[in-house]
Design a binder for these strands. Sequence first.
DNA 1: GAGTTTGGGAGAGCAGTGCTCTCGAAAACA
DNA 2: TGTTTTCGAGAGCACTGCTCTCCCAAACTC
Lengths: 276, 276
Amino acid sequence: MLWFFWIRGMLDGMSPADSIDSDGSPDAADATDAADARRGTARPLTPRARARARTIADIIRLGREHLAKDGAAALSLRAVARDLGVVSSAVYRYVESRDELLTLLLVDAYNELGDAVDAAVATRPESDHRGRFDALAYAVRSWALSEPARYGLLFGSPVPGYKAPAERTTEPGTRVVRALIGVVDDAYRSAAGRLPAQPEPPAVGPALHADFEAIRDGLGIVLSDAVLARGTLVWTALFGTISFEVFGQYGPDTFGARDELFGQHVEHLARLAGLD
Amino acid sequence: MLWFFWIRGMLDGMSPADSIDSDGSPDAADATDAADARRGTARPLTPRARARARTIADIIRLGREHLAKDGAAALSLRAVARDLGVVSSAVYRYVESRDELLTLLLVDAYNELGDAVDAAVATRPESDHRGRFDALAYAVRSWALSEPARYGLLFGSPVPGYKAPAERTTEPGTRVVRALIGVVDDAYRSAAGRLPAQPEPPAVGPALHADFEAIRDGLGIVLSDAVLARGTLVWTALFGTISFEVFGQYGPDTFGARDELFGQHVEHLARLAGLD
DNA sequence: GAGTTTGGGAGAGCAGTGCTCTCGAAAACA
DNA sequence: TGTTTTCGAGAGCACTGCTCTCCCAAACTC
């Protein structure tokens, strides 16, 4: 299964706990209602189920706070239990393990980032491809700088011993790249035939061509091998630039004008993507 | 102090432990000799000092193994002590804390990567700027793929609660970027005046200009603002691409032809750097 | 309404972690 | 030979994830 792809039927397979809205609002129990409605089982919500959903939402909210403050490696189930006013063994009634909580927080963070990106892109008209690209890039950077530890969980070094379950993280985890591909694909569709000539691209070999072909098939896009090759670089470069800033790779004093530096990089990346 | 800069006198301030050769060879004690020789104090090495240096070298070697296997967050001083055949409190005679060991391993890894890059660049003639750039890029990628956990320590999410001491990590930590700047600067020096015209660059504002000016002063290079802007993007993009591969951001199946994909990216990055 | 089921909090316990302290022996030095 | 220094061992503290048992109260069933 290609990583890019929306996994059909995934929502149906989700447990109620997965459906908690990502803002951790107190009425998370309603999310279970929504999930029930989605799969057509109008189950009358028992008080117990309601209390349970509320507790899980609290655990996610507290976990998110700890994650934001101390990072993934320092996330402690016992600390969450303390904040919840409960003994440590009690949280195991709601969350299978620390890794399970990490998965919930991973999905939570992916969706928050995805929402931020979607909202930013939507502020620009559909025809303003360059504007949409800029909005996407700046939205990712803003979220990353405001949530460095959670960004690190998503795009930093893997947590040792933790393996994200693909069936739960793939869809939310690919929202940004799918949005990016959408912006670029729209631009190329609308500009079909009248694109500025790019300098001769390096030839793409048969193996990489097959990879790109599978991506095109899976996502229903029209981008050429050359554009996809440049597009993947734009993708990884965008996150590379942001990661350097978030993770402190620039050092404390080298760049004072970080906004402007990022603007320069976005400019070059947009050109590389062919959006100019 | 700008992060890029070689810190003068740093070696003089180093403790013997910092001078352990990065390959963890058993004769690490000789490194102390070397350090003594460098600062002109020919101290006769006592048996105790010799044994001590050897033990520290063992600790670093074992720590490196654990780091490579399980990642930074899972690095355990007690586990190292067990492997060393000693009780846990005994290692505190040699290493101040877990963070101290992390610093030693950080410097160790930075230097191993720096050595690999320097060696790769040196295989190409000085005039082959594009070849040197490619060699640098592929050397970083090779090392990263063969040492994913240690790469993650250097370029992934920061270890929570750990703050790398700048006076010990800045010099080794900037070896790669200094090598990269060297390659690009050489190319621009040797091509002075006869460079292919680049498409009109976005204008650099006064604040970013000041940053670039400081970098030029500090490193004694001639690169223009436009080239430095593109150069920092090349730098961050290179590590972004490599990080995506090492950290599994591509997903397991999206790209089979990863070598070729990286080759495409290097090609575009070389063009962006003006090395064509 | 009475009886039964079940959900879940409390607490003890196990094995691991980083780190500190004291004690004693051995090695190095004077 | 006697003194000083070094350093390993071991106990102990506070923390972690996680399991197990106990038991009460809320919820469901008849």
